[in-house]
């Protein structure tokens, strides 16, 4: 369990993180979202004890990072942003070094190192020097380094940046699997990734938490009920007169004309009312053929933009 209590981090007069509090329960995967410079990495660096907060406390599995730093740190596996590694070591040497740093007992250390190398898919290249690896491979080495020693808490700063789609899928499923036994905080700016992996999302902007909820709830918050997209075949352009026939339509707007002469419209209702039934029957009466009718799907992107936008207006 990670408890972040009223963390503030100041650089001179600049407040990078402003009174942030949140809790991550055991076995939960939480995504930290926010635009660049929002304070994600600063928050993560504070949790890992790499930097010290100006005010507030971080408690990891009951150990305060300032009062019991060694105990707190031994709970954490950290994958820093930009995957810093030792270029002159081989993969095996690096993971072994990380295991030693984390005080993994000599007995069984080799097996644990091999286990992690296997889990991250690096077995065949484990004797290669890190400087000769590709970006994606380095990412996985960094991941292996964070995972070795089976820390209860994982802090992953942008874990999938620079990977190819196949590797991204692999890393994601690895994180998901790890989330069953570990407490995970990850930061990302790829929203689809966060909505796929995370149980909960914390959106940070300008050093403050602006939203905290499950990805689904965040999406629902911004989805509007009164907008519909219809694609119709309407050769006689009868849709113009439809507006008067159905009560509750505020606006019908042509969005695009497709190659097969069907047209896509956006219909906005006046109230938060489902108009689909009415539209279906009225369109049929007028001889307008409906090819497609759907509600807009709100994505986390929309939620994010909306929330960040609101925060920006303050």
């Amino acid at each position: 369990m990670i408890e972040v209590k009223n963390i503030t981090k100041k650089y001179g007069n600049f407040v990078a993180v402003d009174d942030i509090s949140f809790t991550v329960k055991d076995g939960e995967i939480v995504g930290l979202l926010g635009p660049n410079g929002a304070g994600k990495s600063t928050t993560m660096n504070t949790i890992t004890g790499f930097i010290e907060q100006t005010e507030g406390n971080v408690v990891i599995n009951g150990y305060d990072t300032l009062k019991r730093p060694k105990r707190a740190k031994s709970q954490i596996g950290y994958m820093p942003e930009g995957v810093p590694l030792y270029d002159d070591l081989t993969i095996k040497e690096f993971v072994t070094y990380m295991a030693e740093l984390k005080k993994v007992k000599r007995k069984g250390r080799k097996e644990k190192v091999q286990d992690m190398i296997k889990k991250t898919g690096l077995t065949e290249m484990q004797n290669k020097l890190i400087k000769n690896l590709s970006r994606g491979q380095k990412q996985r080495v960094s991941m292996a380094g964070a995972l070795v020693g089976e820390p209860k808490v994982l802090i992953l700063d942008e874990p999938t940046v620079g990977l190819d789609p196949k590797q991204i899928t692999e890393i994601r499923s690895l994180i998901k699997e790890l989330g069953k036994e570990h407490t995970v905080i990850l930061s990302s700016h790829i929203l689809s990734e966060v909505s796929q992996i995370c149980d909960r999302v914390i959106i940070i902007n300008k050093g403050k938490i602006v939203a905290e909820d499950t990805p689904e709830n965040l999406e629902n918050k911004v989805s509007s009920n009164n907008v519909l997209y219809v694609t119709v075949e309407d050769t006689e352009n009868k849709i113009e007169s439809i507006k008067e026939k159905i009560t509750g339509i505020k606006e019908i707007k042509l969005i695009e004309t497709n190659e097969d002469k069907t047209k896509k419209y956006m219909i906005t209702g006046e109230k938060d009312e489902d108009l689909r039934k009415k539209i279906f029957t009225e369109f049929a009466k007028e001889g307008i053929t409906i090819f497609e009718m759907k509600k807009p799907e709100a994505t986390l992107e929309d939620a994010f933009m909306k929330i960040i936008g609101e925060g920006g207006k303050e």
Binding site: T48, K70, K73, I76, P84, Y86, L101, K102
Partner: peptide, 14 residues
């Protein structure tokens, strides 16, 4: 310079 101080300073070593 290489950022690896993040690895050492976040490991359980004082």
């Amino acid at each position: 310079k290489s950022g690896t101080d993040q690895l050492i300073m976040t490991s359980p070593v004082s």
